[in-house]
């Protein structure tokens, strides 16, 4: 009996020590259905619902612009999500503030560099799968000079990477994030999802190759307070970098159509029956 116990102890000890200790990757949100919604609208376009569609599109567009999610060059201000996402992209692609490239090595704050198949972050070597969390303390309503996460909240983003580079979906959370945009006090609390397309870099085992952003699909679920107005909902839009166009998926009784705007004069809808160019002022549309 004693020998049997000993054998079990030996086998158990070996099995326990042989268990692989690998980082557990978080579950990545599935944004493919939303991507399909934008790529393959379900409903045909009808001029009869033009006014309703435009009203819905303007609601989303205005809210996103108010939140700073759609850039506002005239203010020169950026929202925390854009800053955090920009930091994440810059870190991994070797560009932007706080990063520099040295040959094939990538150095971030004296800490992140590639060495063959591994990455060294501040002296700790990593390889294989993993994930990065970027946390940005929100600036608050008073543009405080030092971070105060308890008072002003945070925005956090998570990105999963493999030997081949980053996964396309970056997601995160706004936790009572206070900031100012266009001199309006903004409070955001909820979850955000970004399908980055090819924006994040790939990694071939030797070096990162900077991604070429073609489109960013952004979804925000939660509460947004602008001044005294609070909005609750589930909003999404897509930015096509190649032609600087904005797209918003809109629901109709027959499914969704996609509103697009390249400029004030070039707007329309992408529907299951084709692309429609509209003269918003004249309330007319024609098939492209």
């Amino acid at each position: 009996m004693g020998k049997v116990v000993l054998v079990l102890v030996l086998v158990g000890a070996t099995a326990c020590m042989n268990a692989k200790m690998e980082v557990e990757l978080p579950d990545s949100p599935d944004m493919d259905p939303l991507v399909d919604e934008y790529d393959f609208p379900e409903a045909p376009f009808s001029i009869d619902i033009l006014n309703d569609l435009l009203a819905d599109a303007m609601d989303v567009k205005n809210l996103m612009a108010s939140l700073g999610l759609i850039s506002s060059p005239e203010t020169g201000e950026d929202d925390p999500v854009s800053i955090a996402l920009g930091a994440l992209t810059a870190l991994a692609s070797g560009s932007g503030d706080g990063t520099e490239t040295e040959g094939q090595a990538l150095v971030v704050e004296g800490g992140l560099e590639t060495q063959g198949q591994s990455i060294t972050v501040a002296g700790q070597e990593y390889e294989g799968d993993g994930y990065i969390e970027v946390t940005r303390v929100c600036p608050g309503w008073d543009d405080e000079l030092s971070p105060n996460p308890d008072k002003n909240g945070t925005i956090s983003l998570t990105a999963i990477f493999h030997d081949t580079g980053f996964e396309a979906v970056v997601w995160g959370e706004a936790d009572k994030c206070r900031y100012r945009f266009d001199n309006v006090h903004v409070l955001r609390d909820g979850e955000g999802y970004v399908h980055t397309g090819g924006a994040l870099p790939t990694y071939d085992g030797e070096q990162f190759t900077k991604g070429e952003a073609e489109e960013l699909l952004i979804r925000f679920v939660g509460d947004a307070t602008l001044g005294k107005d609070t909005f609750h909902g589930d909003y999404d839009f897509r930015v096509l970098v190649t032609n600087s166009s904005l797209e918003i998926s809109l629901d109709t009784p027959d499914g969704n159509v996609v509103y697009y705007a390249i400029s004030e004069t070039e707007q329309g809808f992408i529907a299951s029956d084709g692309t429609w160019i509209c003269n918003i002022g004249a309330k007319t549309c024609e098939k492209k």
Binding site: V23, A84, A87, L91, I119, Y126, G130, Y131, V134, V137
Partner: peptide, 11 residues
């Protein structure tokens, strides 16, 4: 204001 946490497997 911004921190990055890198979770990975040992090299």
């Amino acid at each position: 204001f911004t921190t990055m946490t890198f979770h990975g497997n040992a090299g």
